[in-house]
Design a protein around this nucleic acid. Structure first.
Lengths: 92, 92
DNA sequence: TATATATTTAGGCAAATGTCTAAATACTTT
DNA sequence: AAAGTATTTAGACATTTGCCTAAATATATA
């Protein structure tokens, strides 16, 4: 879960996630949305892949990236749980 | 939201959050749960406070820390929204 | 085969992060 | 007022992060 939080702790990477939410894209298309270099985007994509937030599939000379949203489940569960205990304490 | 994700991207800080879920604690009590120095814990608490995850209240010579879970709401909303690929409309 | 296109890898650099010890600040008690 | 307790601030250090350019790899096309 640490890799996931770290992955989400960068605005560029969150923007990439928001892009991929609309449709799958290859690395070049993703890079075109930003003013930083392609190698830097490639690095961000690597971190997102390590955190299992995205999946990459090679298609010819392109590499298509798509979102894997299941990885968020555990995280949301943790956050809700952490929030819930506190509520319980004040509610009861 | 960046400060929040960054705050959550460290295991010690997540443990602090889990501690505070059970009950409010002062800085010394929190530090006693870890093997790292008090100044380091103080720094972690500062980051959590900057991210609005905790609130600190001075009580005599102690400083009591408590969780502020409302800050998670926006984050969970973002994650859920991003996970929902079918509804691509961005609402504010 | 040679050239163009897509993407990553390598290496370097400045800034941010997480840790420490020592010192400073604030409050309490004697 | 002096001493003790709680916590933070300051400064240093190694590691990580995010960015860059240049080079390498892989595929497509003339």
């Amino acid at each position: 879960m640490n890799l996931l939080f770290k992955a989400l702790g960068d605005p560029t990477r969150r923007e990439i996630i928001e892009l991929l939410r609309k449709r799958d894209m290859n690395a070049g298309e993703i890079a075109d949305h930003f003013s930083i270099s392609k190698p830097s985007i490639s690095h961000h994509l690597d971190l997102l892949r390590q955190a299992n937030v995205v999946i990459s599939i090679k298609e010819g000379q392109f590499i298509t990236y798509s979102l894997n949203t299941t990885v968020f489940d555990e995280m949301v569960k943790w956050v809700i749980e952490v929030s819930d205990k506190k509520n319980k304490k004040t509610k009861k």
